Computed example of a mutant assay.
Amino acid sequence: MDLLRGTLPDVAVHVVTAVREEVPAYGEGMGEQMAATIENAVQMALAGFLRVAGRATDPGTPLSPTVEGAYALGRGEARSGRSADALLAAYRVGARVAWRELSATAVSSGVSAATLASFAEMVFAYIDELSASSVAGHTDELETSGRVQQRYLERLATSLIRGDAPDALADAADRADWAPPKTLTAVLLPPSQVRPFLGLITSRALVVGDAGLPDDLVVALVPDMGGRSRPRLLKTLAHRHAVVGPARPWQEARSSYARAVRALPLRHGADPVDTETHLASLVVTADPEAHADLRARALAPLADLKPATAEKLEATLKSWLLHQGRRDDVAADLFVHPQTVRYRMGQLRELYGDALDDPHTVLMLTLALA
């Protein structure tokens, strides 16, 4: 064992050289400092093996605390951005080179075939345990960092719909390692539809699962889905009971979210509600109390009529305003005879007098009946 122990520095150098040549992830871009660190780790691993091998009589003997170092190596490689596949490839190359050199030294020292076979079994059992420990460390690091980043992304999404200051949003995006897009579009949809929708549209959306919305709706802030991309977004949301806000600069996502929330009463059926096609309704209902007061004042002349009569005159007045007084168009809209329209408009003129020719009154009536 002393003879083998003396070869460890050279073996470690040869292992690192082979790994850098044969595994692309550990090529020249790895840097000399990282190469020296891995070389030292290889020496420690081989030394740990020789200590165990010097005492072991059974290939199944527990194989040294060096596995803890392998676990830490796996976590470090995950933080460096190298994959578990690259790590396992490095282990395979390292095992081959180490065995070739250690076995050559053993043979030259007159080790018997039986001892060499037992030694080989121990070497590869040791490598298996080290690689398994490194993969476990790699997996744990990814899961931990993934959970941490997910929490940061959730906090960023909450900050966006809350409307935090731009500086605070920029800091939150940096912490979440999230590259801001040009725009964000707020989409409100049922929880069961979030994963299928995002699977079809993007993996970069931010999600707020508990926004306190009716029916437990979830908020998805979808990047860069304005302009020509909006039809694709709406098509993807078909039959998903969604409400879609406007595209807004990413730090103004609160505006998109607020409009989508205001459009929730417009949901009927499974087709998405596109707030861009309901702007007039959203403007008119922006202040429900003010709209109710405006409606009561504008329609005051109809207040003393029978409900059925008032309803017919109201419908006629609305159509007359929308069709700019074109009697035939009003008749076609209401499915009545043009003479009926003429009669009803006569009634309305008696009730309103010259006010129907006043632009301010016409504006009030248009808004009241919208």
Rank of each mutant, 00 (worst) to 15 (best):
R349A: 10
V93L: 05
A242S: 14
Q347M: 11
V208E: 06
R327P: 03
R96M: 09
H337M: 07
T17C: 10
L73S: 13
W250N: 03
A170R: 07
P214N: 07
P249D: 03
E154C: 05
A35E: 14
H278Y: 00
E129V: 13
D215M: 05
E77D: 14
I201Y: 03
L50P: 03
A114H: 06
R228W: 08
T366M: 13
P246K: 05
D357L: 09
V15R: 07
L3E: 03
D357Q: 08
H239V: 12
P166C: 04
G48K: 02
P246S: 06
M30K: 02
R151N: 09
E32T: 15
L189C: 06
S192G: 05
L334V: 14
A90Y: 03
E121F: 01
P288G: 11
G212H: 02
D271Y: 00
Q149R: 14
T37D: 14
S159L: 12
S159N: 07
D174M: 02
L189A: 08
P272W: 04
D274Y: 01
L130G: 15
G163Q: 02
V13G: 07
A41E: 12
A35V: 15
A72F: 02
L4T: 01
R259Q: 14
P307R: 12
P180V: 01
D358V: 08
P65E: 12
S83M: 07
A25T: 11
E32A: 15
G81L: 07
T183F: 03
R175G: 02
V52G: 05
G199W: 05
P265K: 12
M345P: 00
P214L: 06
G227Q: 11
Q43M: 14
A113N: 08
A292T: 11
L200T: 04
P196Y: 09
M345R: 02
P301D: 03
S109T: 15
L365M: 08
A290I: 05
H268E: 13
G29Q: 15
W178P: 00
R96G: 14
E289Y: 01
L3M: 05
S83P: 03
T316I: 04
G245R: 07
E39N: 13
D215P: 00
M34G: 06
A125H: 07
D210W: 00
R204N: 11
A280W: 00
L302M: 05
P59F: 10
P181V: 02
R254P: 04
A172Q: 01
S131K: 07
D354K: 09
V341A: 06
F335L: 12
V16S: 13
D304M: 03
A296F: 02
L88V: 10
D167M: 02
P24H: 10
A296H: 04
S83V: 07
E39P: 01
A53F: 12
A45I: 12
P214I: 15
S103W: 00
Y257P: 06
R96Q: 13
L102C: 09
G74M: 08
K318H: 05
K235W: 06
S108C: 06
L73H: 06
T17D: 15
T236C: 14
A368C: 13
R262V: 02
G54E: 13
